[in-house]
Design a protein around this nucleic acid. Structure first.
Length: 548
RNA sequence: GGCCGGUUGGUGAAGCGGCUUAACACACAUGCCUUUCACGCAUGCAUUCACGGGUCCGAAUCCCGUACCGGUCACCA
């Protein structure tokens, strides 16, 4: 009995050869400078910010080189799979407009290199594994979990490297005859790769982020096919898929760095050349005094849904991640304000090799800047769309009178130096609620300098009876407030007040604050004149009367 | 523990042997402007690049060692 007999016993129904598949997945019709990337998440039901960064890198590389960015669903771990996970991935990519050119979704395959779902590629993997068995580079392993556990424990005790290699790889020595017999007896087995590597030999490897490194050759016989579902492990699926799909650049987290030599050896066992690798640093989080990997369990901002729920503009999130990917992005963007982020050329070599802390302050800043530049129509649309999914109360506010809403958000907008107070759509309600009468009751007034109730009443009455005129323009309006200040003993001129504060009861800022707080309850609001214009005289009087 | 990687301000970082008295941006602080807040403007914020040694006329930049941080050592990806 030979390895070929063994291969036929294990895969009796596989009739194709790897050459058949190589023909079915021909070289892509692209030039040397057009790169092929893929986003290959496993459908666990989460979209982590680190995954998102990798997808963005994939997208940027393909976009920059006019190449191909495809999505591959790595669902070989059926135990961890979540039903809605693919929807989440697709929706997130769609939300950020970084959609793949090839993918498989809801039964539809777009692209010529599918299926793009690993569990649908079982026959392909089996063909490749069968080939490896035939040429003696893979074999069935009957070792039980107990043996493996004992092996590891004794290796640790003897301070040796752990793993299934050398003398520990006892199924390596099983003859085809014995293997066939044991299989026919119904013994459970996995398929392992037969490594020819020598751990003491260092091989050079170049990672596009980390640069040139030397890594020990792999000598571990890794499992390449699992026993229960007969699906491949990540290592093997990576090799087969990225070869057949002609991926030129593999972007993945740096946790994969220690296994590149496994992958290289597997590529070589088929006579294939490995793709280029971009091992991205992990995104970190500060936790007290220490720094750790950002965690989906402890840090809400680790998950992409956080940014959607809070209502950050998609572009703001992209730009904040771009600054982590390539810190020269910001400068570029300043110099090219009219270009889109994808016009920027991403360079993995400029990416930091160490893990970066993701800074929410930075995101807020980028986002405020971006929202401040939106027209009122644009902000209205964005905020309204967001509210329909995430905030019923804001939605109701907007729907009660959309023109009024637009007028409110337009205060200090659409001008050279717009107001920057909205970082995310979920901020809006808290910034404008007082413009709605049904919310303006039982409020806490934040009076500042002038707190005496009689004096406040006096200012309000004097103002409404003697000075306020709804049709005044802004300059006249403010001049009248100053006139009132003079009359009531407050300084109308700040410079004079500062020169001699003792001579006055207070100043025009203090008086304005009384008006502002009486009308809004808050001491910090946008332009008071515009607020008063929007409220109108009747509502102003009503609010003054509410002040007790 | 073995192997691999990293270490420049509170944060992202530039820097790649002399142009650096360490860029730019965020954050923070102060001042100016101002009807509040914000905006804007101005100023400040690492005498020093984890530490120790070496190479060199010259080092954040090159070499060695130490420390610390991270990754990895699964039929998970």
């Amino acid at each position: 009995m030979t390895n070929i007999d063994l291969a036929n016993v294990i895969f009796p129904n596989i009739t194709k050869t790897i050459d058949d598949y190589i023909k079915m997945y021909p070289k892509r019709n692209l030039s040397e400078t057009q790169f092929v990337t893929r986003f290959a998440p496993s459908p666990t039901g989460f979209m982590h910010i680190g995954n998102f960064m990798m997808a963005l890198i994939d997208y940027m590389i393909a976009k920059n080189t006019n190449g191909v960015f495809y999505l591959r669903n790595e669902d070989t771990d059926k135990a961890r799979e979540v039903d809605s996970a693919v929807d989440l991935i697709m929706n997130t990519l769609k939300h950020y407009n970084i959609e793949p050119t090839e993918y498989e979704y809801k039964g539809k395959i777009v692209g010529n290199y599918g299926p793009y779902i690993q569990s649908e590629r079982k026959e392909i993997y089996h063909t490749f594994i069968k080939h490896l068995i035939e040429i003696g580079r893979a074999y069935p392993c009957f070792c039980k979990k107990e043996y493996l556990d004992e092996m590891r424990a004794s290796q640790e005790e003897m301070k040796k490297r752990t793993g299934y290699y050398g003398v520990y790889a006892k199924c390596r020595k099983i003859s085809p005859d014995e293997a066939i017999e044991r299989i026919k007896n119904g013994e459970k087995y996995v398929i392992r790769f037969r490594s020819k590597g020598d751990f003491d030999i260092q091989i050079p490897f170049e990672d596009l982020v980390k640069g040139k490194l030397h890594l020990s050759e792999n000598d571990i016989d890794d499992v390449i096919m699992k026993s229960d579902n007969l699906l491949p492990t990540y290592h093997f699926a990576h090799v087969v898929d990225d070869f057949l799909m002609h991926t030129t650049h593999v972007v993945r987290g740096e946790e994969w760095l220690p296994s590149v030599t496994k992958h290289i050896e597997m590529f070589e066992s088929f006579g294939f050349t490995a793709p280029k690798y971009i091992h991205t640093p992990l995104i970190m989080k500060k936790d007290g005094d220490s720094i750790r990997k950002i965690s989906k369990r402890k840090d809400p901002e680790a998950l992409m849904k956080y940014y959607e729920e809070k209502g950050y503009p998609a572009l703001a999130v992209i730009e904040s991640v771009m600054t982590i990917m390539n810190s020269n992005y910001e400068e570029w963007h300043r110099d090219n304000p009219d270009k889109m982020f994808y016009d920027f050329t991403y360079d993995p070599a400029k990416m930091s090799a160490s893990g970066a802390l993701y800074d929410l302050d930075k995101l807020d800043n980028i986002s405020k800047e971006m929202i401040s530049k939106m027209t009122k129509e644009k902000l209205y649309e964005e905020a309204y769309t967001w509210s329909k999914t995430y905030s019923k109360s804001l939605q109701e506010l907007i729907e009660s009178d959309s023109e009024y809403f637009k007028s409110i958000i337009n205060i200090e907008r659409e001008q050279a130096k717009p107001r920057k107070d909205i970082a995310k759509y979920s901020d809006i309600e808290n910034l404008i609620w007082y413009m709605y009468d049904d919310k303006f009751n039982k409020v806490d007034y934040e009076y500042q300098k002038i707190t005496d109730k009689e004096e406040i009443k006096n200012i309000l009455n004097t103002y409404i009876n003697e000075y306020y005129n709804e049709s005044d323009d802004k300059e006249t309006w403010f001049n009248k407030i100053k006139e009132m200040c003079d009359k009531l003993g407050y300084a109308s001129n700040m410079k004079e007040y500062k020169k001699n504060p003792e001579a006055f009861k207070g100043n025009v800022a203090d008086v304005s604050t009384v008006l502002r707080v009486s009308l809004t309850s808050k001491s910090m609001t946008p332009d008071l004149y515009e607020i008063m214009q929007l409220l109108g005289k009747d509502r102003i009087i009503n609010r003054f009367n509410l002040v007790k």
